[in-house]
Computed example of a mutant assay.
Amino acid sequence: MKRIDLHVHSNKSDGTLSPSEVAELAHAQSLCAIALTDHDTIAGIKECQETGRELGLEVIPGIELSADYHGKEIHILGLYLDLSNPILHETLKAFVEAREKRNQEMLAKFQALGFDITEEDLGPRDQLSIIARPHFARAMMNKGYANSMEEVFEKYITPGKPAYVQKAAPTFKTCIDLIHQVGGKAILAHPYIYKFVNQNPLPMLDELRYNGLDGVEVIYPKHYEPETHRLTQYCKSHNLIITGGSDFHGDNKPNLQIGCGYGKTEVPYELLEQFVKA
């Protein structure tokens, strides 16, 4: 079976491999196509596409946007974006500025807790387009304040913990509309990992679909088989695009592999035909 992966991150956001290294790894894993979907940035796509062309790997221009859903955070993937559209660049600049404000507030909280963490510890700013929570977690681990990134998340940077700052995210409708404005398809990422859905994401999907959602990330490493089946039936019933991906982040998710997740996630190439028909 020809395989693809439509949810992949590079070090332009919170992955650890460069866009070129992502393409090389995908090719080494015999993937036919990937979508580079870094958080709130398209900075790595051209590099990834250039390497992909050399290797015969299709690289779909994508993004993962954080969106507000009635006070809760969800993620919406944009696939097949028009990278030349000025609206995309202008809007993403505002998103990055909001992230930077949040990062400064989180940095101040860590310092107030007595941790000697500076901006320089978060990574080389001339190479990073986005600073996110994994950068804080790795900095804490590198400084010897924690034994793992998971420990930092659990103790400090999840909602309710002392260094957490709520992200100022645009509404889900704003994200869907932006993706459509720049020629893309809007896909809800990993519906079953949002704790607030209480194992029933269908009411949320109904509302998102009413507001223009094009598809759902059905195949995902943390989705159980009954959940995948339920989402597949929902998409077929409502003429929504079915996608899938590993959510690869390199060493920031060390047991999660590109193209196969935890070893069992397989996304068939045939799913790309839906984008042609949609």
Score class of each variant (00 low, 15 high):
Phe248Met: 01
Leu231Glu: 00
Ile74Gly: 09
Ile131Gly: 00
Leu205Cys: 03
Pro19Val: 06
Pro191Phe: 03
Ile176Asn: 07
Asp214Trp: 06
Gln127Thr: 15
His9Tyr: 06
Leu31Ser: 05
Pro86Ile: 06
Ile4Phe: 04
His180Lys: 07
Val197Asn: 08
Met1Thr: 09
Pro159Thr: 01
His223Thr: 01
Leu65Gly: 07
Ala94Trp: 13
Asp214Gly: 02
Thr91Pro: 05
Cys260Ile: 13
Pro268Thr: 05
Glu47Phe: 01
Gln274Ser: 06
Ile157Arg: 01
Pro170His: 05
His39Asp: 03
Leu272Thr: 08
Glu154Cys: 05
Ala108Trp: 09
Val152Met: 06
Gly15Tyr: 09
Thr243Lys: 04
Ser10Lys: 02
Leu57Met: 08
Thr158Met: 12
Glu207Asp: 14
Val165Met: 00
Cys48Ala: 12
Lys222Asp: 15
Leu213Ala: 09
Asp214Phe: 02
Ala35Gln: 09
Met106Gln: 04
Leu36Glu: 07
Phe172His: 11
Gln111Lys: 11
Val276Asn: 15
Ala94Asn: 15
Val59Thr: 11
Val197Met: 00
Glu90Leu: 11
Pro159Asn: 03
Leu113Thr: 04
Val197Lys: 02
Leu128Tyr: 11
Ala33Arg: 03
Asn255Glu: 14
Glu21Pro: 08
Asn103Ile: 11
Arg230Met: 14
Ser84Val: 04
Ser30Met: 13
Ala137Trp: 03
Ser246Leu: 10
Pro268Gly: 09
Gly245His: 06
Leu107Lys: 06
Ala67Lys: 06
Lys2Thr: 10
Glu225Met: 13
Thr51Met: 14
Pro226Ser: 04
Asn252Lys: 05
Leu271His: 08
Glu227Leu: 10
Tyr164Phe: 13
Gly212Ser: 05
Tyr220Cys: 02
Leu107Met: 07
Tyr269Glu: 15
Ala43Met: 00
Asp206Asn: 12
Phe110Val: 06
Met106Phe: 11
Arg125Ala: 15
Ser66Met: 10
Gln199Met: 12
Gln49Tyr: 10
Pro191Ala: 09
Lys2Gln: 14
Leu205Thr: 06
Pro134Thr: 07
Ile242Val: 10
Arg209Phe: 11
Phe95Lys: 09
Arg209Cys: 12
Thr91Lys: 13
Asp206Glu: 14
His70Thr: 08
Ala43Phe: 08
Lys195Trp: 12
Ile179Ser: 02
Phe95Ile: 10
Glu270Phe: 07
Gln199Arg: 15
Phe153Asp: 04
Lys195Thr: 12
Asp116Ala: 14
Thr51Lys: 15
Glu266Asn: 12
Gly62Pro: 01
Lys109Pro: 03
Asp126Ile: 11
Glu120Ser: 14
Asn255Tyr: 13
Asp14Pro: 08
Gln111Ala: 04
Glu225Val: 13
Ala108Gly: 08
Ala186Gln: 00
Phe136Asn: 06
Glu120Cys: 08
Lys167Ala: 13
Asn85Val: 00
Lys185Asp: 04
Gly56Asp: 05
Lys253Ser: 12
Lys46Arg: 14
His7Gly: 01
His89Ile: 11
His180Ser: 08
Lys155Asp: 11
Thr118Cys: 07
His190Val: 07
Leu271Lys: 03
Gly62Lys: 00
Glu119Arg: 14
His135Met: 03
Ile241Val: 10
Met204Ile: 13
Lys101His: 13
